[in-house]
């Protein structure tokens, strides 16, 4: 078996005096679906942003395919080309149609021919039930459709890893399902993913590994059936008691 696709070693990050990530070690192998859980403020979003080099880290190393990319001499854009990321909200560019949202990066960053980028985008949009929305603008879409379009946009560049930061957290409950269904399909298709989520049932279903973050540390990690039902740490148990319906 080859080494991890993406990994963090001794990752530290603070905002001013506030230490937000405190010695994170994380390996993400191909086809892994890693779910980050933990209470609000535990550092899930910050960890994802650091992995995408959207934040400057204070200490530690991030490696992509065994190559250190947290080095200041590495162009972060070269790394982000290989990684797709979707945020909680305001992902899509409202002045562009769904199709133009999808083709922007392939055409401008990856140098893909426009016709080719468009046909690939349309194909992906159709696969995820958005075929008829290609020329619509984001504000004509429901929240669920918007997040699905954002996911399609992230897939259009053919990323090695997908980072998803609570992509259903801002949605009405009845719209969560359609977005999770799409993530589930990608997981089944073997996409490597790291996702921060509050949806414990979903984490149990799709995760190959669950990491519990607590005050900037990965307090424990393991397969979902073990970590979510029989955690080793008292704090994990407390957290799960709070979020799981008993």
């Amino acid at each position: 078996m080859s080494g991890p696709v993406l990994s963090a070693r001794g990752l530290r990050k603070s905002y001013g005096d506030r230490v937000v990530l405190d010695g994170i070690d994380l390996d993400i192998h191909q086809h892994d679906v890693v779910c980050l859980i933990g209470s609000s403020g535990s550092g899930k979003s910050t960890l994802l942003r650091c992995l995408d080099l959207l934040e400057q880290i204070d200490d530690g190393v991030i490696e992509l395919d065994g190559r250190e990319v947290s080095d200041p001499h590495v162009d972060p854009r070269a790394v982000r080309r290989e990684i797709g990321m979707v945020f909680q909200a305001y992902n899509l560019f409202p002045h562009l149609s769904v199709l133009d949202n999808c083709t922007l990066a392939p055409v401008r960053v990856h140098g893909t021919d426009r016709d080719e980028a468009e046909s690939r985008s349309r194909e992906l949009l159709t696969r995820f039930g958005l075929g008829d929305k290609a020329s619509a603008h984001p504000d004509q879409l429901s929240g669920g459709q918007q997040q699905r379009a954002a996911l399609v946009r992230a897939l259009c560049t053919g990323p090695r890893v997908l980072l998803l930061d609570e992509i259903t957290a801002a949605l009405d409950p009845e719209l969560v399902g359609e977005v999770l269904e799409m993530v589930r399909a990608e997981a089944r298709a073997g996409m490597t993913m790291v996702l921060a989520t509050h949806e414990m049932a979903f984490a149990r279903e799709v995760a190959t590994r669950v990491c519990f973050l607590d005050r900037g540390r990965i307090l424990e990690q393991g397969p979902p059936e073990q970590l979510l039902t029989n955690p080793g740490e008292e704090r994990t148990r407390q957290f799960l008691r709070r979020v799981l319906p008993s």
Binding site: R80, A89, Y90, F93, R108
Partner: peptide
Amino acid sequence: IHPSQIASAQALALSRPQTMRHV
């Protein structure tokens, strides 16, 4: 312009000038 818009553009690997110009 919402900071998430800029973060989204950066996550798509757009350069700063490209982010300004297109987003």
